[in-house]
Design a protein around this nucleic acid. Structure first.
Length: 380
RNA sequence: GUGGGUAUGGCGCAGUUGGCUAGCGCGCCAGAUUGUGGCUCUGGAGGCCGUGGGUUCGAGUCCCACUAUCCACC
């Protein structure tokens, strides 16, 4: 029995429904990134309901360091801890090993690296990552992978990808074991595998075929948006996604800009996540249908319009650009919060528009129209 | 009133025995940021060096006067 049901296709764009123990979600969707169990910028789970968040994303590595996955397990799991009942996806920690550890040693068993907070030595391999994610009791666990640098040579990437495949087998085995244990909180935790291969077509394709045979709950494309061009990224999706199972959700990790998402959907992607709306929101960079604006710019000092005309987010419903700009310049928490809420609302509602366009069988026209609007530069 | 100190971009300061286009931090003005260390990075604008004289080839730097300001004492 599959928990993933395609409702409509429009070209390669898929409109689907995905059932989980924490409820059914509508795809394509954007997951709101809350690395340490909170969306940075003083955004609580009560706020997420108000901006139509479907899935919250947290991070295995960060939560294992602080407060510790065993603490969260003792408190009943991440859902209870955060008081969030909808789906949570936990990233495996593989990317953090690549992105924030200065010193790391990758071996067959796993990776040894230094903690970013106090520098102590940490070992994480597929089994450790699955155990932590099982303790967190997220809805969806991600496989522990290696995300090689975009500048790595083909030989390195090939070896890395082969090891990632072996790690995936170990993840699957460990997940099955954990889900069968008596004291496991979420015995129906799902596992998504991750495709790698840099920007090398054949490695990507071979890897996609290999992991497709492993009967996972979903498939992610990782290792993109790490320095390659947009064209390279779109090309990799063009050649890779067709080799992933169509009857399973597809997740493009860490991507991206509104335009990236519109293009990703057109290539069959269901799930997206990105720190852009939250991180850049904290720094005053806001997304609108007509492109992005930097609210810290002096020209907004006397601007009494909302961030985006017609937007119904908590920031736009009540406050002016001038006021929010002042809050940002004064480094008031409220400024960051309002900007993050606007950006997440913008992303979540763009996804809703995308779903409606696919339902209407009009996705490609919609995409072109929206990308033209984003590039129009008519923010003001 | 007396003695001493200080005066350099919006603010706080560096500027060596006088020597090229006077620097730095913060702020300001912009830009970057893609499975998040509330960051970080990259550019840019802005100064007749308190005022007036003097010494010197050359003065932010030395001398004199004035003005402002701070500290101590009366």
């Amino acid at each position: 029995m599959t928990n993933y049901k395609i409702l409509k296709k429009c070209g390669n764009a898929k409109r689907a429904e995905f059932q989980t123990v924490h409820g059914t979600v509508q795809t394509p969707l954007f997951m709101n990134v809350g690395t340490v169990g909170a969306i940075k910028g003083a955004v609580g789970t009560e706020d997420l309901e108000g901006i139509d968040t479907q899935v919250e994303l947290s991070n295995t590595y960060h939560l294992s360091v602080r407060p510790g996955d065993k603490v969260i397990k003792e408190l009943g799991g991440l859902h209870k801890f955060m008081n969030w009942s909808k789906p949570i996806l936990t990233d495996s920690g593989g990317f953090q090993v690549f992105s924030l550890a200065k010193l790391r040693k990758i071996k067959e068993e796993g990776v040894t690296f230094n903690c970013h907070i106090d520098g102590h030595k940490i070992f994480m391999g597929p089994e450790e990552s699955m155990q932590i994610q099982s303790n967190l009791a997220s809805t969806i666990a991600m496989a522990f992978d290696e995300c090689p640098p975009s500048k790595a040579d083909d030989r390195y990437i090939k070896n890395s990808v082969e090891r990632t495949t072996r790690w995936l087998e170990r993840c699957k085995k460990e997940m099955a074991r954990l889900n069968s244990l008596e004291d496991t909180i979420n015995k129906e935790q799902l596992l998504f595998g991750i495709n790698q291969g840099g920007v090398v077509d054949q490695i990507r394709i071979d890897h996609a075929k290999t992991i497709s045979e492993m009967e996972l709950d979903g498939y992610a494309v990782g290792g993109l948006a790490v320095g390659e061009t947009h064209e390279e990224m779109y090309h990799i999706l063009d050649v890779t996604v067709p080799h992933l199972p169509e009857n399973k959700p597809t997740y493009l990790m860490g991507v991206g800009t509104p335009a990236n998402i519109l293009e990703g959907v057109d290539r069959g992607v269901d799930f997206f996540d990105c720190v852009y709306p939250s991180r850049n929101g904290r720094h005053g960079q806001l997304w609108t249908k007509y492109g992005k604006l930097n609210l810290k710019n002096a020209r907004y000092q006397l601007d009494t319009r909302p961030i985006e005309e017609g937007c119904n987010c908590p920031a736009c419903r009540r406050y002016t650009r001038a006021y929010i700009r002042h809050l940002l310049k004064a480094e008031e928490m409220l400024g960051m919060r309002l900007c993050v809420l606007h950006n997440l609302y913008f992303y979540n509602h763009m996804m809703e528009d995308i779903r409606n366009a696919i339902d209407a069988g009009n996705y490609q026209n919609f995409k072109k129209e929206r990308i033209d609007m984003l590039n129009s530069g008519e923010v003001d």
